[in-house]
Every structure is written in structure tokens, then in C-alpha cells.
Simulated scan of single mutants.
Amino acid sequence: MWKRWLLLIGAIVAEVLGTMSLRAAIDAPLFIIGVVVGYVVGFALLGLALGQGIPVGIAYGIWAAAGVALVAILSAMIFGETLSFVAIIGLVTIIAGVFIVQTGQASAPKAEVLES
């Protein structure tokens, strides 16, 4: 069970590194390597997490929300980009929304798969 979540965390970290490298590549084009590696590893790990049984809606929601939040925070810290109070409220709202979807998914009955 923990393997799937570790894969998802790895996917988040790799995607965030890829995105941060994308911003860094503006000043130092060599960071393009980090962009490619980050996104390839991120998508590969996300696919592996899905293969371990995490529902795609949950995995993608967590991956996207965590990525947005981490990139916004790291961009403010590393690149001095503005992170206003309203933006922080938005990030908290996104994370809360993903949490609500996650808990709702855990208690929802499973849909039957129709075979053709």
C-alpha cells in the first residue's frame, strides 16, 4: 500500500523539479536537461502509481494540487516571485478540495465495470 503513495510522492517531486528547472532555464539554458528529466520521471512515476491501484482522479488531483502549491512556494523562495494573501488562500482552497475529493472517494461505493 505504501509503495503506491511513495511513487506518487516521487512523481510530485520530479514534476516540481522539472517545473522549477523550466523557470531556471530562462537564465541558464542548461537547466533544460532538468526539465526533460523531471517531466519524464514525473510522468513515469505517476503511471507506476496508477498501476499500483491509486484511482486516476485521486492521483491526478493530489499530483496537480501538490505541484501547484510547491511550485508557487518554491518560486517565491528561490526566484522572489510574489505570493499574495489571495494566492495563498487559493492554494489552501485547492489543497482542501483535493482532500475532500480524496475522503469522498474512499467512502464511495465502487462502480461496476461493464464488459462488452
Rank of each mutant, 00 (worst) to 15 (best):
G34T: 05
W63Q: 08
M20L: 15
V101D: 10
T19V: 04
G97F: 10
V37L: 10
T19R: 03
S75R: 07
R4Y: 02
F85E: 13
E115S: 00
L17N: 08
V113Q: 01
A11K: 12
V36K: 11
D27G: 15
V113A: 01
S21H: 07
I62H: 02
I73D: 00
L46T: 10
P29F: 06
L45D: 07
T93Y: 03
V113E: 04
L70N: 06
V13Q: 04
W5K: 09
V92K: 00
I73V: 15
T93D: 03
V40E: 07
L70V: 14
L91A: 10
E115L: 00
A59D: 07
L8W: 09
A69F: 06
W63V: 10
A106R: 01
P109H: 02
L74C: 10
K110Q: 11
L83G: 05
G104L: 10
W5E: 15
R4H: 10
V113H: 00
G34R: 04
L46A: 11
L6T: 13
G42L: 05
S21K: 04
E112L: 00
L74I: 12
M1D: 13
G38P: 05
V86S: 14
V113T: 02
I95K: 08
A106H: 03
E112Q: 01
G38S: 04
I94R: 04
I33E: 02
A44K: 12
Y60G: 11
G47F: 08
P29R: 08
L50V: 08
D27F: 02
I12M: 11
F43Q: 12
L50W: 01
A76C: 08
G57H: 03
I33M: 08
F99S: 15
L30Q: 13
I33P: 06
P109C: 02
R23Y: 04
L17V: 12
V40R: 14
I58G: 03
G57K: 01
V40W: 05
A11T: 14
G47Q: 11
V41S: 02
L70H: 03
Q102P: 00
G38C: 09
V37Y: 07
G53W: 05
L50S: 01
S84W: 05
G104F: 00
E112R: 03
V37W: 02
A44S: 11
G61L: 07
A108I: 00
M20D: 05
M1P: 12
L30K: 08
L46K: 11
L7H: 08
I9H: 05
S107A: 14
